[in-house]
Simulated assay, not measured.
Amino acid sequence: MTGFFTEERSVETVNARMGKHINPRLAEVMASLVRHLHSFVKDIHLTTDEWEIAIGFLTKAGQICNAERQEFILLSDTLGLSMLVDAINNRRPIGATENTVLGPFHVVGAPERKMGDTITLDGKGESCLFEGCVINAHGEPINGARIDVWSDNADGFYDVQQPDIQPKWNNRGIFTTGDDGKYSFVGIKPVSYPIPNDGPVGQMLSSLGRHPYRPAHMHYIITAPGYQKIVTHTFVGDDPYITSDTVFGVKHTLVAPFERINDGSTIWRSPFNFVVTPCDEGK
């Protein structure tokens, strides 16, 4: 034991209170957390008033959380923590499709659709053909890859945000590749939108002089037997927020072409190939 608490030996004193037979990983995580927290407080000489503000912020974040909203995930996203955890846990070889944040609006059980189907059900927005291939690092097509897609509508809202306004499963669908590995579906050219900013995280962003916007993107989850799951987006490159995504989700390899084609009712085309990585590679 290290004795009584002192400023100089605060870390050692707190960590010494842990039991000897606890989960080793828990001990490692908590010891590091205490070490970094105490170092942070000492480094900036945190005042009592500042500590009270921090406690109040966390209290308000907890109070606003419910089944539809998770303010702590929003906090993690806007501090870049979510992207850092994702990057550490999804390291892949150069050339493989990179992950980005899942986001809060994925819904399990979206309808299975046929290749080429339209996922936009509300009739809004500029129609866009999304197409490409799911391939491995050697360029070989992947048969049986499931592609789960979703996006906001032309007003910048997901269907689950407007259950009384948008049709159920608007801008959502699941597609399965054949022998050629190709996919195609018609959605809309997505638009940028703000994350929920009426709570403590929004107040934090405002205080920091930051905007709450995400650049326009299409969501994808791609799964195939024997390959790592890809959770990612493709982004509209000329979006005004492309270099300042409030959740830091943009990677340059995920910026997709959006080509104006004006082919009948379809205005845009966005080609993008997804390169999957074997389960045992890059971990």
Rank of each mutant, 00 (worst) to 15 (best):
T2Y: 06
D239F: 13
N262P: 08
L58S: 06
T120I: 09
H36Q: 11
Q203P: 00
D180I: 11
V250C: 08
D180N: 15
L254H: 05
L84M: 12
I147R: 00
G202W: 08
F157D: 08
Q162F: 02
S127G: 08
S207I: 05
S76K: 03
I119Q: 07
R260K: 08
G103M: 02
I165F: 11
A27L: 13
H217L: 02
A154V: 04
A87H: 02
D148I: 12
D179L: 10
E281P: 04
P163M: 11
G56Y: 07
I261F: 00
E71H: 02
D159C: 04
I195L: 15
V186K: 04
D179N: 13
W51I: 08
H45Y: 04
E140I: 05
I22D: 10
H138S: 14
V186S: 04
I22P: 00
E52Q: 09
R260I: 07
N143Q: 14
P104F: 12
I230E: 05
I119E: 06
I230D: 03
K229F: 12
G226F: 07
R113V: 12
T78V: 13
P257M: 03
G3S: 13
T120D: 14
R25S: 07
E52D: 08
I94F: 08
V255E: 03
K114N: 10
D148M: 12
K229W: 11
F185M: 01
I73W: 12
D238V: 01
I94V: 13
I88P: 01
N136T: 04
W268A: 07
E50P: 06
V255G: 01
D245R: 09
P93V: 05
F57G: 05
G144Y: 09
R113F: 11
I119H: 06
L254G: 04
I261H: 00
N99L: 10
I55S: 12
T120E: 12
V14K: 09
C128A: 15
G139V: 04
P271D: 12
L74S: 10
G178I: 01
N273D: 15
G187P: 03
G139Y: 11
C133W: 14
Y220R: 06
I165A: 04
R9E: 11
G199N: 15
G19I: 03
R92V: 14
Q203C: 06
A154S: 14
A31K: 12
